[in-house]
Design a protein around this nucleic acid. Sequence first.
DNA 1: ATGACGGAAGTTTTCCGA
Length: 264
Amino acid sequence: MQLATWNVNSLSVRLPQVLDWLAANPVDVLALQELKMTDDKFPAAAIAAAGYSAQWFGQKTYNGVALLSRTPASDVVKNIPGFADDMSRVIAATYALPAAPGGAAQSIRVIGAYFPNGQEPGSDKFEYKMEWLKGLRQWVQAELAAHPNLVLMGDYNITFDDLDVWDPVGLKDTIHCTEEERYHLRALIALGLHDSLRLFAQPEKSYSWWDYRDFAFRRNRGMRIDHILVSDALKARATACTIDKTPRKNERPSDHAPVVVTLS
DNA sequence: ATGACGGAAGTTTTCCGA
């Protein structure tokens, strides 16, 4: 089974690339972020024609998340229960999980999330990011208790450490790299989650986002801010995790690349 | 120090992203 996450920076613009990518990478579940469209504009028919069912949660202009899947979703939740939010940032669903060898059929809980950007430490948007992170953690803790097989994936807008940053000195304490943000990321890990990418050997300077400006992709000046966190039970089944830079080489790319995890 | 690029809204310039 494969699951992936991709911030597409406008699904209207990127739909052909998403369909091309799915044709080449027929993952079981794909979480999308930054749809930047209202729900009535979601291209459900084109996605169904590609063999995927979809759950989506959009809004005008900004944000918006979706889950595309080979099998139907159940128990869909939009945004964080108990955390009032007028932005569409979270969508969760449950899917059938193929039984492990000799085991019984199971289910997998998938949470796709577009974490707040935060703009600048000390700003109102940064404060909102901190409150959102607290609300998310409280809810994910309860979800983990209910669902041993859990994946939390999306655009976290946080780096774990210097390895995730092309210029850790120049970008020290700037947005995505502050100690406050990283505290919250480690707190998610402390719930019993694991950073899929670091379970496996990776190329040096592996990033998932590059600025559109200044030839940042060509110079590999990026950050790793898109993550797939898996629960203990799924860590035992994880066999690979990769960042696919191929779509970032398209003519009109998203600024993010997809991240893919493989489970046995 | 600033802006660079890209998208949306919407109409010419502004907000926002990361």
